[in-house]
Design a protein around this nucleic acid. Structure first.
Lengths: 226, 226
DNA sequence: TTTGGTATAATTGTATACAATCATACCAAC
DNA sequence: GTTGGTATGATTGTATACAATTATACCAAA
């Protein structure tokens, strides 16, 4: 399973199926295809200039990702993200990011720790100036480093999936004033990891997710998802 | 996403792709296809009496399940389960079963609680008589009820996936004398859920998984996976 | 013997053709 | 008007044909 993500990346870049998969995934996450909308193989094939075969294969993958539902002999329907899904994902992530931070305590490399510190330092800078674009990018980088530092391809893959899945919601969260607070929490998590305190790291990372979710609820950012 | 599993089941039963998918999945989990073995589309198609198309679609799903790795223009290779994967899964499950038990406290129905109690009662009976087959089945039922009682399709689906994934290992665990102990832990979890004590339920379910894993390590059941 | 290259075979990637299933429209019987 | 059924069209399921890529075998040159 090592290199799985790398190979996947290669596939996505060079095969028609991979390009179709990414395209539809983005279109769903960005709201081009709305909830319950039917995706027809020929229509999408024509739109992207490919035949039905790669489209069908992409559909099978999208189904397992939970983004569409395929009803045999009927069709493929978009499974829009709902407020309940977001809540579930954030709670699941809270437990798993906690576990990830715990494992990072014994597996993180010096290079990763250094990069984390740099990311947090940079984020302080951009938070003070309200640079939302950069904040989103740095938040991404912090979590990606954390996921990769736990030495578990299983957990890393799972967390990256969920992270992607709620991407659109996270954008809004960060641009709603929580960026600075979030970054302070990142700093505390990093410090717990650096001092190899797994209980503290797990608890902080766990709480970090709960806070992020509660912020979204308070700001009413989930009301549009029902 | 409601009914996703149901529909999936229908697909698996009646479509060639579904049958191919299940068949290969089983063959990998049961060790017929060994680690790093190459799966060829035509060979498997001939063996099952179908063309390459349903085989290819099944491959795409198996890849996302992590059971095979597809290298573009080269082939599909079995990703054998490794001892490290099992450890990761059990630790991930420990956190998630804990969360599941917590949610069950406020969402479980009276019928589900009753069925749980029946399962535990029956398991006491069979444990005393060393009926391994029945113990495995009842363990399955307990966890399935628990997963379905949390009112989260997301978490339910995730836990069912992992549960399936480590199925073979679990068989051996239960037939190694832990069945009775495991069932007592089930009873405590159920009681915590019945008295609506989420903190206790989460902690007990969490520890239940850790215990199951440590038992496997002690009994040396993981040594064959490297 | 080793190395390099070319031809051939094997395998996957994609497109298309045909079969099976499902949705719709229309008409007849009541 | 409503119900039931049949015919038609649309859509998915599967098989197959062809293209592109990769692996293998063999031979020639060093």
């Amino acid at each position: 399973m090592e290199n799985r993500d790398l190979k996947q990346e290669v596939t996505d870049k060079y095969s028609l199926r991979g390009r179709v998969f990414n395209r539809i995934r983005e279109d769903i996450l960005n709201g081009k295809y709305k909830d319950h909308e039917e995706l027809k193989e020929v229509a999408i094939g024509n739109e992207l200039g490919v035949s039905r075969t790669p489209v069908r294969e992409a559909f099978r993958q999208l189904e397992l990702e939970g983004l569409i539902q395929i009803i045999p002999n009927k069709g493929a329907y978009v499974t829009g993200i709902k407020a309940k899904d977001i809540e579930d994902i954030y709670m699941i992530r809270s437990r798993l990011e906690g576990l990830c931070a715990r494992w990072a305590c014994e597996n993180i490399t010096d290079e990763q720790l250094e990069e984390m510190e740099e990311v947090i330092y940079l984020a302080e800078f951009h938070a003070a100036r309200g640079h939302m674009e950069q904040m989103a990018e740095l938040d991404n980088r912090f979590h990606t480093i954390l996921y990769e530092s736990c030495n578990s391809k299983m957990l890393e893959h799972l967390l990256k999936d969920y992270h992607q899945y709620v991407w659109r919601v996270r954008q809004q969260t960060l641009s709603s004033g929580r960026g600075a607070v979030s970054n302070v929490e990142h700093k505390y998590i990093m410090e717990a990891i650096r001092e190899k305190n797994p209980d503290k790291a797990e608890e902080l990372a766990n709480q970090h997710m709960v806070n992020a979710y509660e912020n979204m609820v308070d700001k009413g950012l989930l009301e549009m998802y029902d």
